[in-house]
Design a protein around this nucleic acid. Structure first.
Length: 719
DNA sequence: AGCACGCCGACT
DNA sequence: GTCGGCGTGCTC
């Protein structure tokens, strides 16, 4: 009998699994977690398959099989699928799964002490301090000692005389069990019907996807809680993905209110200890209710019953680093592989999900709005043909008036302008020439902050010329049209004392800066925020009551096909945040085409009409959900070399029908952690397997160390 | 992801 | 002469 071989996947960026021999008398199964020698080190890996054919060469032996539960079968499939779909190596995906591998060892044991309740009158001062100030109990001897200002020896000594009880217990205790049978809020008949639908899906215990579609205040959460309760009743685990910002204490308390126990929270910021405990308890099947950010999707739950993605349209489900994936889409994939139901919930569903619902891939469960529920802020259009601002200005009189009102009341305004830079066009007054990119037809955008003229399509940039390159006229070059920089200047000139800030990828190049600026907005330290789509992050701006869309014409057919959808979601979200009784939100949209149906739909608050117009636009342009898009990001420490690598990469593109390549151009966050970034877009017809195409393409590229070529399937940002 | 190998600059 | 910088390549 030939010896058994196994394929082991390591959490390392290599193309696939490695072959190993199994020592005699050792039993190994698919999913087992093992230690095996790789190179000069010993690494943790996962057995992906067992008993493969003889590879015809001497193999190393695995060193140890961990006595923990193997990774569940669907999880192994999930790792491979996620890798293939997102053009990553399975090892990189496994790394996300095994992020807390220390949890594989049993919980460390600690001796904890607590008072027995005895309290003789002749206590020594140290012992009295231990009892009175040493709490909360039970605690480690050292902790009690520190709190009471005594030595740990005193605490241990108290055990012998019966004043304290010592108890050895695991450091990571199990989580409290949620109780599915607690009374929830009373549901309306419509909510009850929706809940019954979802509960039925859970009872089937098989894959299904449901889009739960209901405006803020329609009781979406209460409705899906019923499905969660049903899964819990079956003794299964429930995974609820929420946007990062919802993972606050307040965000978690609604779960506690309904299920009587705080859920297991999982996000990138938790401590190592909490992470280890959560991972172990989830992997064992003991932790039943998990609420987490996108990375929670990679927890290897032993007995999953239901996945919920709340606020499914939220852009924070998109992971933009390392393995680039969209947790919303991967949640549906995992549901399919686990053969369990998935619920996507939102007040403003993504067009992708609505499309899937229309095609019947998702059940569409619509919650009617309750009277008085907040849908949209009051939206008005400003006809720019009537309210024409002065030459070189872009804020109309009604817009300025609306901002002035907010400033007077100490409230905040957001001016939404989805264009970077100062001006999108540089024109010579003398000869009419437009500054263009050398090898494309696109205009150069003036960036006053850096003093350069930049092509957003190809990444070409030059110093702002002093005279016209065409006719040599001095002072002939004029800036035409607005960008965020110019709008901010104009707003500042109207309101010299207002605190005006810009939020765009040019002014804020690091995520820390973005967070910092949004934080100041949240704290009310900014009066007028001028921003591109970056502001649409579901932040809570309690004093924001006015949104001015500077160029409503850009919503239709601009450079970013998601602009319309984002604007819509922004307006709804702003309404949700500013929807307190004393602070009704208002939005004004400047446009030259007030008759345009997308704008009319917005004003009428007619979501279906708006969606219809957006869908038609996407279909015409072959964009998602009617076509496929990938972005490629090329990074490196040297700007010229990164660009050269990008250009060279384009030449290596495999020939294929129905695929189009655009770029490369400078990426929106063109410098990140000292690295230069270039980006190109690939669009494809729906019949093209874009993941496969991109994988084949990238395999042809030779990437120098310190340089990276990253594929982003279905990118979210285009600007 | 690590780790070793190897090929060039400033030190005991 | 060597110590050590990091660029390149490999791990069943």
């Amino acid at each position: 009998m030939s010896r058994q071989n196994v394929q082991i996947l390591f959490p390392v960026n290599v193309p696939g699994a490695f072959d190993y021999a199994v020592p005699d008398g050792v039993r190994v199964d698919r999913g087992d977690i093992v230690f095996a020698p790789i190179g000069k080190q010993m690494k943790l890996g996962v057995v992906m398959s067992v008993g493969a054919a003889d590879v015809g060469r001497e193999l190393k032996e695995i060193a140890e099989v961990k006595a923990t539960r193997p990774l569940p079968e669907p999880m192994l499939d999930f790792i491979n699928w996620v890798a293939r779909y997102n053009v990553a190596s399975p090892g990189q995906v496994l790394r996300m799964v095994l992020r807390s591998w220390k949890a594989l060892d049993p919980s460390p044991i600690a001796t904890l002490y607590e008072p027995t309740g005895q309290r003789p009158s002749n206590l020594t001062p140290a012992r009295r301090a231990a009892l009175d100030e040493g709490g909360p109990f039970p605690a480690r001897a050292a902790e009690i000692a520190a709190r009471a200002g005594i030595s740990a020896g005193v605490v241990k000594g108290m055990v012998k005389v019966g004043l304290m009880r010592a108890d050895a217990r695991p450091v990571d205790p199990p989580f409290a069990e949620p109780d599915p049978n607690m009374k929830g809020r009373a549901l309306s008949p419509a909510q009850n019907a929706a809940a019954a639908d979802l509960v039925a899906q859970v009872k089937k215990n098989a894959y299904s996807a449901s889009l739960l579609d209901g405006v803020t205040g329609s009781g979406k959460t209460e409705v899906y809680f019923e499905a969660v309760a049903e899964a819990l009743r079956q003794g299964r685990q429930v995974l609820i993905l929420v946007p990062e910002i919802a993972l606050t204490q307040a965000g978690l308390s609604r779960f506690e209110a309904r299920f009587g126990a705080e859920p297991v929270a999982w996000h990138s910021g938790i401590t190592d200890m909490a992470r280890r405990r959560a991972w172990r308890e989830v992997a064992s099947g003991r932790a039943k209710l998990v609420v987490g950010a996108r990375s929670a999707l990679f927890l290897p739950a032993a007995n999953l019953g239901l996945i919920v993605v709340d606020e499914e349209h939220d852009t924070s489900f998109k992971q933009e680093e390392g393995v680039i994936y969209n947790a919303r889409d991967m949640a549906v994939l995992r549901g399919r592989l686990e053969d369990r139901p998935v619920i996507l919930a939102s007040a403003t569903p993504s067009l992708e999900s609505l499309h899937n619902a229309r095609l019947g891939r998702y059940a569409h469960i619509i919650l009617p709005e309750r009277p008085g529920a907040i849908t949209l802020p009051e939206i008005g259009l400003i006809d720019m043909k009537i309210h024409k601002p002065e030459r070189g200005s872009f804020l109309s009189e009604p817009m300025v008036k609306a901002v002035a009102e907010r400033i007077g009341r100490g409230e905040q305004s957001l001016l939404y302008m989805n264009r970077r830079g100062y001006a999108p066009l540089i024109l010579c007054k003398a000869c009419g020439a437009r500054l263009k990119s050398p090898d494309t037809d696109s205009w150069l955008v003036e960036h006053r902050a850096t003093g350069r003229a930049v092509c957003h399509l190809t990444g070409f940039s030059m110093r702002m010329p002093k005279k016209c390159p065409n006719c040599d006229a001095e002072d002939g070059l004029t800036s035409i049209g607005p960008g965020v920089e110019r709008i901010a200047d104009e707003a500042q000139s109207h309101f010299p004392h207002a605190r005006v800030e810009i939020l765009s990828s040019d002014t804020t190049s690091t995520p820390e800066e973005i967070k910092e600026r949004l934080g100041r907005m949240e704290r009310g330290e900014i009066d007028i925020l001028v921003g591109t789509q970056m502001v649409v992050k579901g932040h809570n701006f309690p004093k924001l009551t006015f949104v001015g869309v500077v160029d409503g014409d850009l919503l239709m057919g601009g450079s970013d096909p998601r602009a319309g959808e984002r604007t819509y979601q922004t307006l709804v979200q702003v309404a949700g945040r500013a929807g307190r009784a004393d602070m009704a939100g208002e939005a004004l949209i400047q446009t030259h085409h007030p008759e345009h149906e997308a704008l009319q739909a917005l004003v009428a608050g007619d979501r279906d009409m708006f969606i219809g117009v957006e869908m038609a636009m996407r279909e015409m342009l072959g964009l998602p959900p009617y076509g496929r898009i990938a972005a490629v990001i090329i990074w490196g420490p040297d700007m010229k070399k990164a660009k050269a690598l990008a250009v060279d990469f384009v030449t290596k593109a495999p020939r294929a029908d129905g695929v189009e390549i655009l770029g490369p151009s400078e990426a929106p966050i063109s410098r990140l952690r000292g690295l230069y970034r270039y980006r190109l877009f690939v669009t494809a017809e729906p019949s093209v397997n874009l993941s496969k195409y991109m994988a084949a393409w990238r395999a042809k590229a030779k990437v120098p160390t310190k340089y990276k070529i990253q594929v982003d399937i279905d990118p979210q940002s285009f600007v």
